[in-house]
Amino acid sequence: MSEYRWPIEKLNDILQPIRETDLIIIGSRPSQGKTTLMLNMAHRFARDGIKTAYITLERSTLELKERFISRHFRDYYDAENLRRELNEIPLFFFDLRDWAIDEVAYEIEEEKESLNFDVCFVDYLQLICEREGEVDWFKELALLLDIPIILGSQMKRTVLDNPGNFPQEKDFHDGEEITACADTIIMLHHERSYDDNAPKEELRVIVSRDRGKPVNRETVLNFDWEKAMLMEEKQESIPR
């Protein structure tokens, strides 16, 4: 079975390598960096030559690309270079807004046969229409196609009732299904969203499940929130 190192080095400190049949859930409350992290990961995978599909269920492909480009460039030439790079690296965007789960699954299967991509991102779960058993659909699809699927998921407002507003598995929409199907569960926490005095650049990454087993690990990524991009990683992983 093929394995992939995580494209963000600090995640390799707290997570085992990604297997080709893994279903990975990345969850957070809105505006906590879920799409931004997934886009950065997809870009890094493709830049390293790993064929990567990115399914958008919220924005058009053009909007998603331009959002990524506009927040990364320093001047016109940087923007053009990044735009050209996105057209050259094996990063494939698909706009499946307003599609039902069976249509989304069928399209991923069809595009996998055509493009033979290695990793698939889906952004995000709750935007799928006519939802029923959709987490199980994605796990079955990962097994069928022999690809890891990284699936974004919103979390409920119950996060706000937790100590320090830290997300927990119980706060997921479709929580029981996610716990039953997911190989890896990652939750994001941007403390600055709740405390104006918290460090603005920190994105806390909490892992509650890895290789199907409960774990209790976390690390902190340095994020430039204005540019929506990862900064140089300096901090060490922290125990929890």
Rank of each mutant, 00 (worst) to 15 (best):
R5G: 05
W6K: 08
N12R: 05
D13H: 06
P17N: 01
P17T: 01
I26E: 00
P30R: 01
P30D: 01
T35W: 01
R44I: 06
F45T: 08
A46C: 02
A46Y: 02
I50N: 10
A53M: 11
L57V: 10
E58W: 15
R59K: 10
T61P: 13
T61G: 13
R74D: 05
D75W: 09
Y76E: 06
A79L: 05
A79P: 00
N81G: 05
E85T: 08
E85G: 07
L86M: 15
L86Y: 14
N87C: 11
L91M: 10
F93H: 14
F94H: 15
L96E: 08
I101M: 12
E107R: 03
E109A: 02
E110D: 07
E111R: 15
E111G: 04
F117A: 04
F117R: 04
V119R: 11
L125D: 12
L125P: 14
D146Y: 11
P148C: 11
I149K: 07
T158G: 03
P163R: 10
G164C: 04
P167F: 07
F172G: 08
D174Q: 07
E177K: 09
I178T: 09
T184L: 13
I186L: 11
L188T: 09
H190N: 12
H190A: 10
E191N: 14
R192A: 13
S193L: 14
D195H: 05
N197W: 15
E202M: 06
E202W: 07
L203I: 06
R204V: 13
S208T: 11
D210R: 09
D210N: 14
D210K: 10
G212M: 09
R217G: 03
T219R: 13
F223H: 07
A228V: 02
E236V: 05
E236W: 03
R240Y: 04
R240M: 00
